Amino acid sequence: MELAVTTLAGKSAGKITLKDDVFGLEPRADILQRMVQYQLAKKRAGTHKTKGRSEIAKTGAKMYRQKGTGRARHSSARAPQFRGGGKAHGPVVRDHAIDLPKKVRALALRHALSAKAKDGGLIIVDELAAKDAKTKSLAKMFEGLGLANALVIGGAELDDGFRKAAANIANVDVLPIAGINVYDILRRHTLVLSKDAVAALEERFQ
């Protein structure tokens, strides 16, 4: 697969050949769905918690005698049916993460990249750098490239000026190559890769 390379200013910077085993697969929705579920489940804090009857700070003494009152028999006031009692079957602190084999996770990333390439939502730029680190000038460049909702992936290290300039642009995420993930790729309309990012991805999947 061959794609045109552009600069941030919108000028042509030649062409690049992308490997079909990374960018040319037929996207599978089932694999992408499994990966998104895996990522979202892993992000959940799982810190939701309510107190059970054993954790309530109340006396455990029997409320009143068993017989002779004409009332229902009860033991502890910490039971769930009483005000201030413990919650029955309430949420507890737990890990929501699910298992997904490493090979499936790697395959999902390739399918996400291929999906963007197939839909025309993939743009390759020669370099991600901003000399003046001004948000206004970078936003104008993005507007010229038609980037209203995009994920921008750079090399191993991001240019500090570019990162700072892009930080205040709405609906634009900027990540180094180590942070690339399926969920962020799919949630943005356009994927922008630097030439360094392409080289790193193809080396990763050799």
Rank of each mutant, 00 (worst) to 15 (best):
A4Q: 14
V5G: 04
T7W: 06
L8G: 11
L8N: 11
L8M: 15
A9Y: 02
A9C: 01
K11H: 10
K11S: 12
S12K: 12
A13L: 09
A13Q: 08
G14I: 00
T17M: 06
K19E: 15
D20Q: 13
D21W: 02
V22Y: 01
L25W: 04
A29N: 05
A29Y: 14
L32P: 00
Y38D: 07
K43C: 00
R44M: 05
A45G: 14
T47C: 00
H48I: 13
H48G: 06
G52K: 14
R53E: 11
E55Y: 12
Y64T: 06
K67M: 06
G68L: 05
R71E: 10
R71D: 07
A72E: 08
A72R: 06
R73F: 09
R73H: 12
H74A: 14
A77L: 15
A77V: 12
A79H: 10
A79M: 08
Q81S: 09
F82K: 04
G84A: 07
G85C: 09
K87C: 05
G90Q: 11
P91H: 13
P91W: 10
V93P: 00
R94C: 06
L100I: 14
P101E: 03
P101W: 04
V104D: 13
R105M: 12
L109T: 10
R110T: 10
A112V: 02
A115C: 00
A115Q: 15
A117R: 08
D119H: 02
L122V: 09
I123G: 05
V125R: 01
D126S: 14
E127K: 15
A129H: 13
D132F: 06
D132S: 14
A133Y: 07
K134G: 02
K136P: 00
L138C: 04
A139E: 15
E143C: 05
G144W: 05
G144S: 09
G144C: 05
G146Q: 07
N149C: 01
N149R: 09
G161D: 03
F162W: 12
F162Q: 01
R163T: 09
R163D: 11
A165K: 01
N171W: 10
V172Y: 02
V172D: 05
D173N: 09
P176S: 08
A178P: 00
A178C: 01
G179W: 00
G179Y: 08
L186H: 04
R188Q: 01
R188Y: 10
T190A: 01
T190G: 03
S194L: 03
S194I: 08
K195M: 13
D196K: 15
V198D: 08
A199D: 14
A200G: 06
F205A: 11
Q206E: 11
